[in-house]
Amino acid sequence: MQGGEDDVSYVNNSDRQALAITLSKPILISSLQTIKLFSTNSPIRITDLGCAAGSNTFTTVDTVVETLRRRYTAVYGGGSLPEIEAFFSDLPSNDFNLLFKLLTEKRRVDSPAKYFAGGVPGSFYDRLFPRGTIHVAVSLSALHWLSQYMQSDHDLENFLKCRKEEIVNGGVLFVLMGGRPSGSCSQFGDQGTRAKHPFTITMEQAWQDLLDEGLIDEETRDGFNIPAYMRSPEEVAAGIDRISGFKIEKMEYMKVVEHSDEKKEEWKKDPVSYGRARTNVVQAAIRPMVEAYLGPDLSDKLFKRYENRVSTNREFLHKTCFYGIVVFSAIRI
């Protein structure tokens, strides 16, 4: 993800992820209502895996903390609440400086702090914590990103094996990831989704523009792959069955509409602003990968072509664009 706080940063282009979190919040709260209540003498440990940086980073952890505090208060009374530790984990390239800057600002408002916080750099496809130390693990809009292109099953199994070691018996694993509906035979099997979403087609056209202008060759165009895979609920359930150690409490496929009708009407009057906003969202997600592949100059040109394409194609503003997510909660058994 693109760090910093400028127009193309993740922190300023994560509204879609925020909506997905809001839609899935009832599943998270329901899973926490059934979690085993652990001793109040030891800290409760929460981790956000693939935390990025921004308001979304804290929203779900706050939900977990508040839900657990209510449960413990109801059972033990207000004087026996356990201390809570929250570990924010992401790749070392994540903007941890921004994350803790925002956390410090948040704590000035929330004082006294509701939990102790720490950062854990590393890949969630590896072990990050000692065995049996995590009570609640959440991962939001991250698990569809692969460690390497076409490693979907391998990566899912590694993720689950690591969490199986780290999460205590009775603990909760909650995951929200990009996904596709049940019954679709492959990532691109749902042609309706592909046709309705502007990213796929328009980005392909932008790459072709660079090729047509002689700025890149076919090998360069064809050699770039985004290491992401949108799993179906069946694929996720099969992975959990293969690893064992978890009982699925709830799993759903949901559609997240990208823009409100009001926003679309606003952009119809100013398609240039739509093109710029759409491009900022795309850059926030994939600019670091593109820049590592093409370099900064060609990356600027690619995203400019993309912006021009989106700005001049009014068809997208007359479609209901959405993307799919798979959400599940599971109990460690």
Rank of each mutant, 00 (worst) to 15 (best):
Q2G: 03
Q2P: 00
V8M: 09
S9G: 10
S9L: 07
S9M: 07
V11K: 05
N12D: 00
L19R: 15
S24T: 07
I29S: 08
S30C: 05
S31Y: 05
T34A: 04
S39A: 10
R45C: 14
G54R: 06
S55K: 13
S55W: 03
N56W: 04
N56S: 06
F58Q: 09
V64R: 00
R69Q: 12
R70G: 02
R71K: 15
A74K: 11
G78F: 08
G78N: 13
P82E: 00
E83S: 14
A86K: 01
A86E: 03
D90S: 01
P92Q: 01
N94T: 01
D95L: 05
D95T: 05
L98D: 03
L98Q: 05
L103M: 10
T104F: 14
D110N: 13
K114F: 02
A117K: 04
G118S: 15
P121A: 06
S123H: 08
S123L: 04
F124V: 03
F124N: 03
Y125D: 12
D126P: 00
L128T: 07
F129Y: 07
F129I: 01
R131D: 07
H135P: 01
V138L: 13
H144Y: 00
W145G: 03
L146N: 03
L146T: 04
Q148H: 07
Y149H: 11
S152I: 06
D153I: 03
H154D: 05
H154N: 10
E157S: 14
L160H: 06
R163Q: 01
K164P: 02
E165Y: 14
V172C: 05
F174T: 09
F174L: 02
V175Y: 08
L176Q: 15
G183F: 06
C185E: 13
G192P: 05
K196G: 14
T200E: 13
T202E: 15
Q205V: 04
W207S: 06
L215R: 10
L215A: 08
D217R: 09
E218V: 12
R221K: 15
A228Q: 10
Y229R: 04
S232D: 02
P233Y: 00
A237I: 06
A238L: 11
A238Q: 12
A238D: 13
I240L: 10
D241S: 11
M251E: 12
E252T: 04
K255V: 01
V256K: 02
D261L: 12
E265P: 01
W267G: 01
P271R: 09
V272I: 12
R276A: 13
A277S: 09
R278C: 09
T279W: 10
V282L: 15
Q283P: 04
M289H: 07
V290G: 00
L294V: 00
S299Q: 03
K301H: 10
K301D: 08
N308Q: 15
R309H: 11
R309Q: 05
T312N: 14
R314S: 11
R314D: 10
R314M: 10
F316I: 06
C321F: 02
F322W: 12
V326A: 05
S329K: 00
